[in-house]
Design a protein around this nucleic acid. Structure first.
Length: 471
RNA sequence: GGCGCGUUCGUCUAGUGGCCUAGGACGUCGGAUUCUCAUUCCGAAAAUCACGGGUUCAACUCCCGUACGCGCUACCA
């Protein structure tokens, strides 16, 4: 049978990096094995699920390039299926109606906790007789459907493709609820019915599901279905390695990283580095390369912390190796309300080596698009005894320089002026930079001035002393 | 509390019993190139392989225990 895997996010928040992480490996496994990657939306949590989250997840996955072959399927469209499956189990004596109220269950749980016992259901409704059940039903008492854990099931074990042999005592699982009184299935039941119906061959997911696996296995068995293969991997940790990736230590949604100017290929590449080791000695990987060489055996058992600094480095690598045309296109897409889109393209070669994220374009170039503000403190950092006089000299030279300005002449002129004024060439060029941009850091000076325009350059220079007489 | 899982430089990792006086990447620090910043290049510091016992001629690598961390323990997913 050909490989069929699925990713099943629940739309209770924007696309989380952890979800992208899990999706990536499902996607890679499907591609590597020429299988089918299915997307399923687990929207049974009616209070937390939202349409906007679902859209965000779908768009985010598409943006990352993790496209699915089938779906999305929606669990809320399949309620009839779960109901039928649950009724079948009840009819076969493998499940039963439970009339316990949430309050009763809570009380029972507290009691158990106090005594240090495993928190499993007492089985109170398990042996209700037919007539008793009938009576409660006619009274319109609300009921959930509970799975009847087979008494003699013993140890439930499975061979995890990554962790290896894992086994749990079925006694510790108790009789779990599979259908809420509202008629909506619980997670573990919905998943199993879906995985059976969708012919899922490999269930690949985060480590937090290891303890769900035995519960799902008994449900597969009760429903008479063949078991899929299971594989789990560790969840990403917070940068401080305390707890799994959460908002506590920074942004966790893919969308936030997109808005910060991270590239989808860099995010994908970075996530891949945290989960497995590419067999060749290489860190910068395309999705295509990963598809070629992906192997579950190479996934690691110990959790990795998310480190945005390395992500930034990778993002910078991708930006630098991109063609100018491509980077221009990306920037145009990113800077949606830029005031002068025509000037993005000529700036690209100047900023390409200087930005790590698309958003870095803005602080580096905004002086070109708006009048700078000046800070005397910055002028004082230069080792120039008399700024005013030096600026006047600069102004004179620029006004008399042949147009259009040429790089060699420009540089020679001001190297010469620096010598006459007895200041370093560095300070000379820094003075011009500061006078034109208000900043000590900009892209290369001459090229920037050309893009700013000769007239604008001159007007900034000549107005600076009027506007800032205390320089 | 119970059950499951993990533990190599700050971070991501290589390592499958001798090749390890533990290799690489990010970051940090120093240097070279440079009108700033960055890029690029060179170099350095940084892990008694969580700890304690075994097994073995030999252990980061195998076994046991301890500690610490993480996950699950719901009519959440």
């Amino acid at each position: 049978m050909s490989v069929r895997v699925r990713m099943a996010p629940s739309p209770t928040g924007n696309l989380h990096l952890g979800t992208a992480y899990t999706t990536l490996f499902n996607y890679l496994f499907a591609r590597k094995n020429k299988g089918t990657f299915i997307l399923r939306i687990e929207d049974t949590d009616q209070t937390r699920s939202k349409k906007e989250f679902e859209e965000n997840i779908l768009q985010g996955l598409t943006w990352l390039g993790l496209t699915w072959d089938e779906g999305p399927y929606y669990q809320m469209d399949r309620l009839e299926r779960y109901k039928a499956a649950a009724e079948k189990l009840v009819a076969e004596g493998k499940a039963y109606y439970c009339f316990c109220t949430p309050e009763e269950l809570e009380e029972e749980r507290l009691e158990k906790q106090k005594k240090g016992l495993p928190l499993v259901y007492s089985g109170k409704c398990r042996n209700l007789s037919g007539p008793e059940v009938e009576k409660l039903l006619t009274q319109k008492k609300l009921y959930a459907v509970r799975f009847k854990m087979p008494e003699d099931r013993g140890k439930i074990s499975f061979n995890d493709l990554i962790y290896g042999e894992i086994s749990v005592d079925s006694k510790l699982l108790g009789d779990m609820v599979i259908m809420r009184s509202s008629g909506i299935p619980l997670y573990n039941f919905g998943v199993v019915v879906d995985d059976i119906d969708m012919n899922i061959t490999h269930v690949l997911r985060g480590e937090d599901h290891i303890s769900n696996t035995p519960k799902q296995i008994v449900l597969f068995e009760a429903l008479g279905a063949q078991l899929p293969q299971f594989a789990h991997w560790p969840n990403m940790l917070n940068p401080d390695r305390i707890g799994k990736l959460s908002k506590r230590t920074g942004a966790t949604s893919v969308d936030e990283y997109r808005k910060q100017g991270f590239l989808p290929e860099a995010i994908i590449n970075y996530l891949s580095l945290l989960g497995w080791t590419f067999p060749k000695d290489k860190e910068i990987l395309s999705l295509a390369e990963m598809e070629q060489d992906f192997d579950l055996q190479l996934m690691r058992l110990s959790p990795a912390a998310f480190d945005v600094v390395k992500l930034e480095w990778l993002n910078g690598e991708y930006i630098r190796k991109m063609s100018d045309e491509e980077l221009t296109k990306r920037l145009e897409g990113f800077l949606v309300d830029h005031p002068d889109r025509e000037k993005i393209a000529p700036l690209v070669p100047l900023i390409k080596e200087r930005i790590k994220k698309l958003s870095d374009f803005i602080p580096l170039t905004d002086f070109i698009f708006e009048e700078p503000e000046y800070d005397v403190v910055l002028f004082n950092k230069l080792k120039i005894p008399d700024h005013k006089k030096a600026l006047e000299e600069v102004n004179n030279k620029m006004n008399t320089m042949a147009r259009p300005w040429n790089k060699i002449e420009f540089e020679q002129t001001f190297q010469g002026l620096a010598a006459t004024l007895n200041i370093s060439t560095t300070d000379m060029f820094q003075l011009i930079r500061l006078a034109v941009s208000g900043q000590l850091v900009t892209p290369p000076l001459f090229e920037s001035l050309k893009i700013l325009g000769e007239d604008k350059t001159l007007s900034r220079l000549s107005h600076i002393s009027e506007k800032y007489p205390n320089l």
